[in-house]
Structures are given as structure tokens and as C-alpha cells.
């Protein structure tokens, strides 16, 4: 049986402003390694909120979250930062890159932070990722010299640098055209196939969702299928 990389047990979340409001109700789910999962649902149903909790950035919830069989509920900010650094790759809808560094450095940064490999090795790996994403020739550019699709590919490369066990994306193709969107899908698909990493991608694109292994559908803060 495949190994579980992520599991939630009865996750509930409330917002209190302006009125108490239950955004997520009893979320129970799990993802295995090598699984490509998409999350769909109407706008405002709580997909992003769920993803922020799963990525350990949001700790204000009830219930339990396990990543790599480690219960992360009630861990300190420092421990969670280490988990994010080592085990989770995150791709945002908007390409968040650091304008202070060039493309290559941006990709390398989480690797330098983890410090598992020497700098030379990290640089080599970063270049490899950029090459698979067809971005090698842009490596020394500054992020604001890139197009939207190019930035998104850099962000993906950055998410991959530490070989995370799970990669999460919040509408990573939302801003891309069909061609770029297909390309990102292919990249994701290859990761799952070749590296046995897990993928959890929120999307509004039915085609995209249809091509994944499994689709989680949400409505009003619940998983309906």
C-alpha cells in the first residue's frame, strides 16, 4: 500500500470577523505519495483556506494535521517553518518571487535555507530544475524581467528544490493561457510519475481537474466528493 504523506482529522475552521462563520467543516482527507489530486469547488467555498492550513502557514484551526506521519497540530512556528522548508513545496496563483535576487538565487533560496547540500550542489540542482522547465536561459535575469508564465515556472522550480514530499498549488495555472497551463500540467504529471511526489492542486479549470488522478470537490466548507 502507498504511504500517506498528508492526512487531516476533523479539521474545522472559523472566521470571527465580522461574524462567527464556519469556513471549513469536518475536513477528513488523505493523500498518498505519487498521487496527483485536484481540489475544485465554487468560489468562496474554502479551498484556499484549506490549502493554507495544509501548508502549515495557518495554524488557527481545530482538528489535526499530519504530514509524513508527524502530527503538526500545536507545533511551534520554528518547527513548522522547518517542515515547510523541507517537505512542502508551494506554488501560488500569483508568482511570488523575491525581486532582490535573480531567478537562479530565487530557486536556490529554500535549498540554502535547508543547507542539506553544499552551495555548488544546490546551484547545480536549481539549474537542472530550470532546465526541465525550459527556463535555463533566463537563470540570471531578475524576476521582474520575466513574463507571467515564466515567473510561474520559476516558482515551480523553487517549490521543487528541496525534493518536497508534497507540492501544493493554489490555482497555479489561473493566470496562464492554455498552452502554458498545459505545460505546467505536464511538469506536474512528470513529477508524480518520475519522483513519486504527491500533488495537491486547487483549480477552476475542469479540464485540468479531469486529467488528475483524483478530484476533491468542495462546497460550503465541506468535502462533498
Amino acid at each position: 500500500m502507498a504511504k500517506k504523506v498528508l492526512e487531516t482529522i476533523n479539521i474545522n475552521k472559523y472566521f470571527y470577523d465580522p461574524v462567527k462563520f464556519r469556513v471549513l467543516s469536518d475536513i477528513n482527507m488523505s493523500i498518498n505519495e505519487g498521487e496527483f489530486v485536484s481540489v475544485v469547488g465554487k468560489s468562496g467555498c474554502g479551498k484556499s483556506t484549506l490549502l493554507y492550513i495544509l501548508s502549515t502557514m495557518d495554524t488557527d484551526y481545530e482538528g489535526e494535521l499530519l504530514i509524513n506521519d508527524v502530527n503538526l497540530t500545536k507545533k511551534t512556528d520554528k518547527d513548522l517553518a522547518v517542515v515547510r522548508n523541507e517537505h512542502i513545496g508551494f506554488v501560488f496563483q500569483f508568482h511570488y518571487l523575491l525581486s532582490e535576487y535573480n531567478v537562479l538565487r530565487n530557486v536556490m533560496l529554500p535549498g540554502i535555507k535547508l543547507a542539506k547540500y553544499p552551495l555548488k550542489e544546490i546551484e547545480h540542482r536549481a539549474m537542472e530544475h530550470l532546465r526541465t522547465l525550459d527556463m535555463a536561459d533566463q537563470a540570471l535575469k531578475s524576476p521582474n524581467q520575466l513574463s507571467g508564465g515564466q515567473k510561474q515556472r520559476v516558482a515551480i522550480a523553487r517549490a521543487l528544490i528541496n525534493d518536497p514530499i508534497i507540492i501544493m498549488g493554489d490555482e497555479p495555472t489561473g493566470n496562464l493561457d492554455k498552452k502554458n497551463s498545459d505545460m505546467v500540467f505536464d511538469i506536474f504529471n512528470n513529477l508524480v510519475k518520475e519522483r513519486n511526489q504527491a500533488l495537491l492542486i486547487v483549480t477552476h479549470d475542469p479540464d485540468f481537474a479531469a486529467r488528475t488522478h483524483r478530484t476533491i470537490e468542495m462546497a460550503d466548507g465541506r468535502i462533498i466528493s
Binding site: 515547510r84 511570488y96 523575491l98 532582490e100 529554500p110
Partner: peptide, 16 residues
């Protein structure tokens, strides 16, 4: 702010 958010999302703690 954005840079700080990215740093935190990619594994830098509040202390860092």
C-alpha cells in the same frame, strides 16, 4: 511585506 511572506512560506521562521 511580500518578500517576508515568501520567505515565511518557503521555510523561514518568524525568528529568522
Amino acid at each position: 511585506m511580500d518578500s517576508i511572506a515568501i520567505l515565511k512560506a518557503t521555510g523561514f521562521s518568524g525568528n529568522d
